[in-house]
């Protein structure tokens, strides 16, 4: 197991990284935490000729900026897990990180790396979709913002241009009346999700009526996806009775057509979407109601 040879370049700033990307084009590959990339290099599934290590860019500890929690690209999973700021401001993100890999993966893996790798089972990507996070891309012409919901294109492919570096992911902080839930089924604890579902529910000030509901799914398509809006629409404006939640979850599942792999068939995955979506919405509703009472 030996990686094919490459040239190693350290970039201390986003501009430096972009410069290398411009110079080498598609032969260059960014290295952040490396927890997905390095195995691919070692197995020779990827063979960049230039590896651009952006770890020196670093990341300040998470700090909310008004209604947004901006997370620099090199924020490690470990920081998300330990940070009281993240637990308070974006608890859905804190919840999902518990499911990511093992302690070594979390010590190295980064928010930006997870998003840019765009694995179909990515937990952070799933949460970014649910919360409609914004991705800030740093490119030759400066920075632009891409909605998470426009970010994932297909298998391991994002809307980033070849010379762009993901600089930051901006998560909306928890709102009054908002509840959340992250549900994941794995064959073995700590492994890639068979299916993961993350849900967010906003209630009206009455603490009962659903104002908004967002659900994202991992492990059901070529990329993390948002659940069908029409499937969830019947819950809006209602108090989300149990049978209504169950039928919405079934509709969410029916709208998916997952493929099978070594861990589960497509049909089983669809079944999991149904069950986990129902559980996620139910828990999110419970949290939203509790939050409303507390508020």
């Amino acid at each position: 197991m030996v990686c094919a040879p490459f040239e190693y370049v350290r970039a201390g700033t986003f501009d430096e990284a972009v410069g290398v990307l411009i110079e080498h084009g598609e032969d260059a590959q960014l290295l952040a935490g490396g927890q997905s990339l390095v195995p691919m290099l070692a197995l020779r599934l990827a063979r960049p000729t230039v590896l651009v290590d952006i770890n020196d860019i670093g990341a300040l500890p998470p700090e909310a900026d008004g209604a947004v929690l901006p997370l620099p690209t090199l924020t490690r999973h470990r920081v998300l897990l330990d940070s009281p700021v993240v637990a308070r401001e974006v608890p859905l993100l804190a919840d999902c990180v518990r499911h990511i890999g093992n302690v070594r993966v979390r010590n190295r893996g980064t928010v930006g790396g997870s998003m840019a790798h765009a694995d179909p089972t990515g937990e952070i990507a799933c949460v970014a979709l649910t919360l409609d996070a914004q991705v800030v891309a740093h490119g030759p012409a400066g920075r632009r913002t891409i909605g998470a919901r426009d970010f994932f294109v297909t298998y391991l492919t994002t809307a980033l241009e070849p010379a762009e570096v993901l600089a930051e992911v901006r998560f909306p902080v928890l709102r009054p009346g908002q509840g959340w839930s992250f549900q994941e089924m794995v064959r073995r604890v700590s492994d890639f999700a068979v299916v993961a579902v993350s849900a967010s529910v906003d209630l009206e000030p009455d603490g009962a009526t659903v104002r908004a509901i967002d659900v994202a799914l991992a492990g059901v398509a070529d990329r993390p996806v948002l659940a069908e809006r029409e499937a969830l629409a019947p819950l809006l404006g209602t108090t989300a009775a149990r049978d209504l939640v169950a039928s919405a979850a079934r509709s969410v599942a029916d709208a998916t057509s997952p493929e099978g792999d070594v861990h589960a068939s497509g049909a089983y995955r669809r079944r999991l979407v149904d069950v986990l979506t129902r559980r996620a919405i139910t828990e999110a509703l419970d949290r939203a109601r509790e939050g409303s009472i507390a508020a």
Binding site: G34, Q35, V38, A42, L51, R78, V103, V105, R108
Partner: peptide, 9 residues
């Protein structure tokens, strides 16, 4: 902090 030496250069 623990890391995988096989995933670092």
């Amino acid at each position: 902090e623990p890391v995988s030496a096989c995933l670092l250069f």
